[in-house]
């Protein structure tokens, strides 16, 4: 065997899109990510509507009868079905009694468990933030997005722009998780419908304005 010509670098499915759109691509912690885009949109707190790509993180699927036990170990308590909670450095979404998805690093204890399967790369994440996020989503999804029906920390799986999507409601933003093979279609659909609301793409350097990245989970889930 000869050594690989280059060290393995992970690449999310939207990197090529970002590159075509003039985004600045950098390698961070083994992932190629789009750090910034030429146009800097307003922050959501200033009324701006942002669309961000957060595909560059670990994803783990927990399955089987021990899911509650594993989730409790991550979060400190069990998480109800169709709800999510902040874990040590990520989010745990409970889909069914026997199935949960962990976005972010689940820790070595969980990764070694036979009930956990590393599905990093199997889910890509779009972050939609801003005052009109719900209006944009209402053009793409038939789900009831009102706070009463889908409160903060709620999780729903269903079609968004015809694409099977895991939709998570945070206090200041929405996260749309979908299979990477469909994420470009979803991204373009959101962007297209968001035109009327001035939705603009932003690089990963703006993620911090919307979510708490790395450690301590994400805001708005507790």
């Amino acid at each position: 065997m000869t050594s690989p010509k280059s060290a393995p670098t992970a690449r999310g499915p939207l990197v090529a899109w970002h590159r075509r759109a003039g985004g600045r691509i950098e390698t961070v912690e083994g992932w190629e990510i789009c750090v910034s885009h030429p146009v800097q949109p307003d922050a959501p707190r200033s009324g701006g509507n942002l669309l961000l790509d957060w595909s560059h993180r670990s994803v783990t699927e927990l399955g089987g009868p021990r899911v509650s036990e594993l989730v409790s170990g991550l979060v400190g308590a069990d998480v109800a079905v169709r709800r999510m909670a902040a874990a040590r450095s990520g989010i745990v979404c409970r889909l069914t009694p026997a199935r949960a998805i962990v976005f972010g690093d689940p820790g070595s204890g969980v990764l070694g468990d036979p009930a956990a399967v590393d599905v990093t790369g199997g889910w890509s994440t779009i972050v939609l933030a801003g005052p009109d996020a719900i209006n944009v989503l209402s053009l793409l999804s038939s789900a009831d997005l009102r706070t009463r029906a889908m409160p903060v920390a709620a999780v729903r799986q269903g079609p968004v722009a015809g694409i099977n999507t895991l939709l998570c409601h945070f206090a200041g933003h929405w996260e749309l998780h979908a299979c990477p093979d469909s994420i470009v279609s979803l991204w373009e659909a959101v962007l297209d419908e968001g035109q009327a609301y001035g939705l603009q793409v932003a690089g990963a350097e703006r993620l911090g304005e919307v979510v708490t990245v790395g450690g301590g989970g994400e805001e708005g889930t507790t």
């Binding site: 280059s6 393995p8 670098t9 690449r11 992932w31 590393d118 990093t120 790369g121 199997g122």
Partner: peptide, 11 residues
């Protein structure tokens, strides 16, 4: 893993 597919393909 799909995020590393292009790397493996190119290699």
């Amino acid at each position: 893993p799909s995020q590393l597919a292009e790397h493996v393909w190119c290699e």
